[in-house]
């Protein structure tokens, strides 16, 4: 298990570290005393019901939101002051939309390279080569000149991932990035993330409420409901009734995802 209590961190600074982070919006608690370290090479899912603080956790990790209490660190530096942003790739919620204004796949993906190449400097031939390589790897090279608005949901999702990957990040944070994909598209999406984690050693942090789709692929699950209520392997999460506690109702996970274990509830009690 890669999740460690804060304070037990190894000598190498973890890519993402939360130390007793609390956050309030308008007096309402969104995160309460969250402490966790996410280590290099992990493949991790953050699960939780709507309003549990998942997206806020991610934005705090990125330094987009400042905690009310505690510290959010990126590679040992307070997130808001972290400068080498290219080390953290980000695929935001609804990233596949990109608006209706005409922009080609190439144009959208190149914006992800700016944090690495420099803001005022034109793209070098090396930058262009890396962008081309990423497009090829994600099967998007033949779509480079197409407008993003003409693509399917799955293709747009790959464009969003490509935009994050062209900065050559060490960590990829994804916020409900598979939402709206059909079953084959979702499968291909998770396989791609698993491949990037395995082949490139990319640390992947996936915010989702889709436990079934991720449980066979991720190594670690964090259940969040303002606080971290569980962290451990997907199997432990599925077996110990943690999901039912998290969602406040019985949760049915199809046996395919539960690794052959039936966890079926009566039809009337099922929630997905």
């Amino acid at each position: 298990m890669n999740i460690q209590a804060a304070g037990d961190a190894p000598s190498v600074k973890p890519p993402i570290s939360f130390q007793h982070v609390s956050l309030h919006f308008g007096g309402n608690p969104v995160l309460e005393d969250v402490s966790l370290d996410i280590n290099s090479g992990d493949f991790l899912a953050v699960l939780g019901p709507n309003g549990s603080g998942k997206t806020t956790l991610l934005k705090t990790a990125l330094g987009l939101i400042t905690p009310t209490k505690g510290k959010a660190m990126i590679f040992g530096v307070p997130a808001a002051r972290f400068r080498r942003r290219y080390r953290i790739g980000y695929v935001p919620q609804k990233a596949g939309v990109f608006g209706d204004f005409p922009a080609t796949v190439w144009e959208v993906v190149t914006t992800g390279r700016i944090s690495r190449s420099g803001f005022l400097r034109p793209f070098s031939s090396q930058d262009r080569q890396i962008i081309t390589d990423v497009l090829q790897r994600l099967g998007l090279e033949h779509l480079a000149a197409r407008t993003v608005r003409s693509l399917s949901g799955g293709q747009r999702q790959r464009v969003a991932i490509a935009r994050a990957l062209v900065a050559e990040p060490e960590v990829l944070l994804l916020d409900e990035a598979a939402e709206g994909l059909d079953a084959p598209g979702e499968d291909a999406f998770y396989n791609l993330l698993a491949e990037l984690n395995r082949d490139r050693g990319l640390t992947v942090v996936l915010v989702t409420h889709d436990i079934g789709a991720v449980s066979l692929r991720v190594r670690t699950v964090i259940c969040l409901n303002r606080r971290v209520v569980f962290s451990g392997s997907p199997q432990e999460c599925l077996e110990n009734g943690k999901l039912a506690a998290l969602y406040g109702m019985p949760v049915f996970v199809p046996s395919k995802w539960a690794g052959g274990r039936e966890m079926q509830k009566p039809e009337s009690e099922r929630a997905y």
Binding site: L62, L64, I88, Y90, P92, A95, V108, T111, I114
Partner: peptide, 10 residues
Amino acid sequence: LDEEYARAAG
């Protein structure tokens, strides 16, 4: 194209 992403990218 995406202001939030631009912020996250620093």
